[in-house]
Design a binder for these strands. Structure first.
Lengths: 326, 326
DNA sequence: CAACCTTCTTTACAAATGTCAATAAACAAT
DNA sequence: ATTGTTTATTGACATTTGTAAAGAAGGTTG
């Protein structure tokens, strides 16, 4: 047997080595060759270990949230609309040609992940909504325990081809925060108002929904009311229902609830078949993080702000500039 | 003027760009060229910005503390000595030739920095000692606010050629934790016991010292009692005093206080001229982090453990193996 | 407007890293 | 002891990054 060290020890010793190697590389700035020499392993093995560190979250990167909220555009928006903080995600420089929405969403969700760590405090009870944007935020969050926190699922269970089920989002955020997780033991949409009412009256679900009226913080996105909204994709609202909602003045969708241009809830179909937090629940939380990507959500974002549904805002530059231009 | 973007905007906009670029590079994994293209800047400018991000702590790296405490050696030591966690710093592989003490101390201090983030909790009142090891730990800590924390300087002000003054260590730890800092407005050593007593009786200093008896956590190292100890280098103890202390059974030095092999305080010169927390103060804290580097501190480390002065231990592999071999 | 300073760009080159296929070594199961 | 599986190594090569010097561009000051 040659002199190189083999790692046939248990999983925990492997983890200890991985974490130490991560510190040597990312913290101390040693090269892969230097580490390989110290550990008597090949550089390829070190490369594989560092990749495993990144993949498993052994090492996490954190960027100062306050700097992300430092831009003059963000501060002007915060002042203009009376928000506490506005984080403008800059996935590219000014004047540079547009990146695909996927790239913009990637940066918006990373900025939001950093913002959450800035905003959340120990003891917080946090409501987490569901959708493509929220799923991306959950995924982007580093593992960063905040003591004594609880995460509550805001929208009943629902599957979608586009994103993981709603409880998966909440559980992922809870895991990243080391929080206790309260899922909502009901589907997000049922076939009749009567059934929905019956479910809401179930003691377990009733107490779960009651909890949602006493949140310290919410994490949500706002959707537009076009036919390609997430709500349609998830079979929560039909095209006809969306059309009727638009006719009644619906400007945005937050937490599967319609709001008009003033942020007032519009109780039109499928309103009474939905099992989720209400707009009043969201409004009641002291800290309300809204994460939005895309200029097509301008009217919806403005409506949410106007309705008092936002205290902290994460958005991309185009949307920020559009909000500023009004 | 060509198409590239210049950054003559204010400091805050620069910070916003820096933090976003840090997220794109470290978080999203884009290459420097990809970011340069998006921002219409040169790759050299991106390189400079990333360096500035690292230097200013815009981006911080964090390694999971629990994995650092996961090794079988660490867990065995914890069980053997009744400690909560033992973090073994592995600056190289088993059987590899020794690295210089400086390199070992670098890794021990990085591991300790990660351990601190694991241990400290919101609301904690934290005592910070002083010495070469503690200074390295303070420097290695990433900026990671923990709400409602207070940092207290355990040893009166003292300068040394080797390390920054004791209040500088405490202030640095406080800054990294976003904690309130309570410095000790007295020198660490004075020329007479009478003067020390008079200073301790001063209301301000008295209340500062009183605070040290009610700590939630301490961060300290343990020194040996050889002639080259930090205490001598800092002109706190003379060679004669050290010799006398050894004769009286002194085995280690913690917080400028001698302890014997059982961890009991030895009140010999310069005991009554020192203005610092007492051994009883340290023992009273529920969480006691001891950070040690070097096999020459084996006896001192064992004494500290035996004296109930340690709940969490960070040490290098040699020292860990030596502790295990007893 | 000129001079000076700061910041950015260009270019080159060395070093480091990422990736991958083939092979070797270690480990586990039979 | 053999076979199969898993992990590590070797070697090669492309890409990325780090560094630095020289020059260009932008901004500030007098």
């Amino acid at each position: 047997m040659n002199k190189s060290q083999k790692l046939s020890a248990g999983r925990n010793d492997k983890d200890a080595v991985l974490s130490n190697i991560a510190l040597l590389y990312y913290g101390e700035g040693l090269t892969q060759n230097e580490i390989a020499k110290r550990y008597k392993l090949s550089r390829a093995t070190i490369v594989n270990m560092l990749r495993e560190c990144r993949e498993r979250g052994v090492v996490e990167i954190r960027v100062d949230g306050q700097l992300l909220a430092a831009s003059s555009l963000g501060r002007d928006l915060a002042e203009r609309y009376g928000l506490q903080d506005v984080y403008v995600a800059l996935d590219r420089g000014e004047g540079a040609e547009a990146t695909p929405r996927r790239d913009q969403l990637a940066q918006v969700s990373r900025v939001a992940a950093m913002a959450i760590l800035d905003i959340v405090e120990p003891g917080d009870q946090i409501g987490v909504a569901w959708g493509e944007t929220i799923a991306a935020v959950a995924k982007a969050m580093p593992r960063n325990p905040v003591p004594d926190t609880q995460v509550c699922q805001l929208i009943g269970s629902q599957e979608s081809a586009r994103v993981p089920a709603s409880e998966i989002c909440a559980i992922e955020v809870a895991n990243k925060l080391g929080a206790q997780c309260h899922t909502l033991h009901a589907p997000g949409i049922v076939s009749s108002a009567g059934l929905a009412s019956a479910l809401r009256s179930e003691p377990t679900i009733q107490s779960q929904l009651a909890r949602l009226s006493d949140l310290d913080m919410t994490i949500a996105s706002i959707g537009h009311v076009g036919d390609d909204t997430h709500m349609a994709a998830a079979d929560i609202a039909s095209v006809q229902e969306l059309d009727q909602a638009r006719h009644q003045g619906a400007t945005g969708i937050i937490c599967c609830r319609y709001i008009d241009g003033n942020g007032e809830e519009i109780r039109t179909a499928p309103y009474d078949r939905v099992i989720a937090a209400s707009v009043a629940d969201i409004k009641a939380a002291p800290k309300k993080l809204l994460v939005v990507c895309g200029r097509d959500r301008l009217a919806a974002t403005r409506a949410a702000i106007k309705g008092g549904l936002v205290t902290h805002l994460v958005l991309d530059r185009e949307l920020a500039e559009a909000l500023m231009a009004e």
